[in-house]
Each structure stands twice: as structure tokens, then as C-alpha cells.
Design a protein around this nucleic acid. Structure first.
Lengths: 254, 254
DNA sequence: TTTGGTTGTCTAGAACAATAGACAAATTGG
DNA sequence: CCAATTTGTCTATTGTTCTAGACAACCAAA
């Protein structure tokens, strides 16, 4: 029975996803769960190849991809080591603010303004913000980093009349909460959030520094002011391998 | 300029993901968003091939995969038509019950008990249920359908002392809420939920009838009774192309 | 220094994915 | 019936992925 391979057969052939990518995705996940690379050291390539039932070169391709992502570091003669950090928890609460949510878990929080425009509200946006379709809205495209790594890419819409100058203020304050405050909105609440997941699109792959096939968690949210008037409609894509969403129960919400 | 191809270049080559799979994933998403297949009819293969900048055969492979999934139906001489239904909304509230959540959106709700066992609590489970590590817990593996399609695969743990006979009762009632009620627990609350997303594993691919590379939304939740005592710890994998999670704001929670 | 274990590089061939073109088969509308 | 449109099938060719084996380069410990 020494002949029998130990492969776990979790790798599927002819699936349209290359073996090296399936293996890379699996290793990334197991590393993040602490199942692989305990003590910071990965098993040798030959052992991994045997475990997955593939050739050593296939494993090497997977490792190369994770090295490229910054998850692993390979040293000739010594071994392959885990570089990646844990997944950050992003809380979704009534009063969640992006920076507050991740503060304490990471350093170097930053949000960049990638693009902005004033445009007529689409049907979706108008409905969410309780405006007439075609009413002018400000659209902000932002990219947020934590620990020097990009974690989310957001697209937010605001009533252009009520929040004139939002883009300029945001590019200075780098925070939605601070920008609202400057515009006279002291407090706001998260009204509703929808969560989906999908494969990252080309633009997000680039901005979030993901590799093709990577997953993004998508939240679509509406924020309202104290009177219940919508002030922001946003769609945020989180790199699913860096962020997890935490939704506290009602008892913790207040 | 008639020569210039219209391809949208969202398809990446040499990415480890075959072109036909990228196209299939994209078409599935656009169909679910209503961008593709309006009126139930898909554009002809030649048009799709031109749009994605690939050969017609590549598009055919993608279509074949979606036909296999039940999203599309191809009829020789007539065209290709949309079979798939929209994504169901699964609300995450303090008092969400699975069947209640999807009731009204779908028919033929059903939960199957795939497997069950009494086993010693792992560290995670013990901590979540406020038990000592190693204390006996009941583990239920369930599969839920809506509209005849599998939508989620759940693994739940319960205190074996307090909820003795859970497995037998569940296989009869096919509902966690009803089972709790029979065991004397009239009401319970969702205490905490964590949401992540990842590629489906082999077991889930099969049970949820997904194709390799498909995405699952993973929720990890703790339910508590009226006294705040944990009664259930669960990990649920939702087929991300069939379900979206809805998290209402605090004002709607009560 | 020597030995064993590890990653890095190269070559060659087999398996799979994608392209190209041609034509068959079925449906629809004139 | 005929023509146009559409999906289905076949062959051939090219490029990418995976396998197989061999060996070099490097590190650590005996």
C-alpha cells in the first residue's frame, strides 16, 4: 500500500480553473485559518505536491503566485515561510465608521480619493437617496488601506445640493465621517446593508492588488441622518482574503 | 474603425482561470443582475464571442457550463434562453428563522438532515456555547433548498445535554425553530454573525450543485436564548449566486 | 567538510484550452 | 419551399498548463 497516493482530491481537474490556482487559493485559505504554515514555516514542496496529488512544479507555480501576493516568502536552501497577516474584522453596526472599525487592529489606515464626479442620479441611486431620478449627485470612488495593504474599494453617492464640496473635503480629510462633520452633519446611522460575494472584476483586481479569481465581499449600504433622511448610498468591495464582516446581534447594537 | 474589436477586455488571459470559465462567471452574474438575457433570450453566440473578444467555441464552452448549472437552456435553431431565477434575499436579523426569511420569496422550502453525531466539543465550539472543551455536543449537517434548488449547507452544534434528541426531532420537523420549540425553547435570538466569502470546497460543490470556482458566503453565528445563554453555534455556506444577505439597520431590528 | 534537505532552473513531452474554418441540423418568417 | 438565423458537430492547429526527470544552488547541522 506504499504505492497509494495520499492526495486529498480536493483539487478538480478539467474545471476551467488551473490546478496551480486551485492549490494557491486553498493554501491561502488554510494559511489564514492557521491550518498550514504553523510556526511560520510551510511544508516542503515535495510534501505539498504529494498531498495535493500533483507535480512539484504545479505546487511551485502556486507558491510563486502567493509569493507575488505577499502571502509567502521562499528562501533557497531554507524553505518557504508565511508572510501574510490575519484577516481584519470589519464591524457592521448602526454607527460603524470605516476608520473606527479597523482602528486597534491595524496601523496606517488611509483612504485615497481615486475619482469623483457630479452626475445625474440613476434610478437605483435616486431611489436610495430619496431624490428624483436625474437629480445631481456626487459620486466618490475611494480606495482604503490598512497596514499598507489595500482592503476595500468603495463607490459612494451623495446629494450634490446638500453636500456640495464633498469631494474636495474628502480628499483633504480622507474620511467620510469627518467630511460629513465639516458639512454640518454630526451623526449618521447605517440604515441597511446588503452583502454579496463575487469574483473581483478587472478594476478591483488592480486597485486591491488581487490575483484573478480572487473574491470580493460586496456591501451595499444606505446611511441616514438623525431624521432618517438618506445621506449616502454606497457600494463597497472588500478583499475577502483580508477582511471579514462582523455583524453584532441586536443586544450589542444600541 | 470598423475593424476595431469591441471586446470589453474584462477577460484575463494566463490568469490560471480558463477563458470559458471567466466568461461563464461573468454571464451568470450579468444574468442575475438583469444586464444579460433580457426578455429571457440571450444574444447569439457570435455576438457574445465578439463582445468578449474570443472564439465562438469558447463562448459555447461557457454556455455549456451554464446549461449544466441550470442557468441557461439552449435550443438548436431557436436560441439560448435564461432558465435561472433571481437571487433570493436572506435577512440577518435578531429573530431570523431560515424558513421565515425565505418564505414569500420562494416555494418548496425544505431542509434535509445529511448527517448528525454526538461528539466532544472542540475549543471553538465549547467557547461559543459556553461549555467545557470536550463536553458532548450534537452536530447537525443540513442542506436547505428553495424553489427546488439547494441554497445553503449548514453545520450546527448544540449542547447534547440540553437538547438531547435534536437530530431525531429535526429530521422530522425539518426546522431548527420547530425543533427548539419541541424541546421547550420557545424563542431565541441571533447574538452574533460573522460573514466571509471563499471558494466552495469539494463537499459543498456537490451538495449545493455548484461548479468549481463558485463562491460561497459563509456565516458563522451564535444563537442565544432569552437569558442570553448560547443554544446554537453554526456555520452556514450559502451559494453566493443564489442568495444575498440582508442586514437591516438598528431601527428595523426591534 | 560532508551530508541531507530544501528551493531554483532547465528540457521534453503529454494533456488541456483556445482559435479557425466548414458544414450539418433545426427553427422562423416570408 | 426558400432564405436567414441560430445552435450543434467535426477537423486541424496553436498556445498554455501539467507532468516527469535531472541537476544546480543554497543552507544547516553533524
Amino acid at each position: 500500500m506504499a504505492q497509494a497516493k495520499k492526495k486529498e482530491a480536493v483539487i478538480e481537474r478539467r474545471s476551467g480553473v488551473a490546478l496551480w490556482r486551485q492549490i494557491a487559493d486553498r493554501m491561502r485559505r488554510e494559511i489564514s485559518e492557521g491550518l498550514l504554515g504553523q510556526g511560520g514555516r510551510m511544508p516542503p514542496e515535495v510534501a505539498l505536491a504529494e498531498r495535493f496529488g500533483v507535480n512539484r512544479h504545479t505546487v511551485r507555480t502556486a507558491i510563486a503566485a502567493l509569493v507575488q501576493e505577499g502571502v509567502l516568502r521562499a528562501e533557497q536552501g531554507r524553505g518557504t515561510f508565511v508572510e501574510g497577516r490575519r484577516r481584519l474584522a470589519y464591524p457592521i453596526r448602526s454607527r460603524t465608521r470605516f476608520s473606527e472599525g479597523l482602528a486597534g487592529q491595524s496601523r496606517g489606515l488611509a483612504a485615497d480619493l481615486l475619482d469623483h464626479a457630479v452626475e445625474p442620479a440613476s434610478l437605483d441611486v435616486a431611489k436610495a437617496l430619496c431624490l428624483s431620478p436625474g437629480a445631481p449627485v456626487i459620486r466618490l470612488e475611494t480606495l482604503s488601506h490598512a497596514d499598507g495593504r489595500p482592503v476595500s474599494r468603495a463607490r459612494g453617492w451623495f446629494d450634490a445640493e446638500r453636500f456640495a464640496g464633498m469631494a474636495e473635503i474628502f480628499s483633504r480629510t480622507r474620511s467620510i465621517t469627518a467630511s460629513f462633520r465639516e458639512l454640518g452633519l454630526a451623526d449618521y446611522l447605517r440604515h441597511n446593508t446588503t452583502v454579496t460575494a463575487r469574483h473581483a472584476e478587472a478594476g478591483d483586481l488592480k486597485d486591491l492588488q488581487l490575483s484573478p479569481g480572487a473574491i470580493v465581499l460586496v456591501t451595499i449600504a444606505i446611511n441616514v441622518d438623525a431624521q432618517g433622511q438618506p445621506v449616502q448610498y454606497s457600494e463597497t468591495r472588500f478583499a475577502a482574503d483580508r477582511i471579514e464582516l462582523h455583524i453584532p446581534g441586536a443586544d450589542e447594537t444600541g
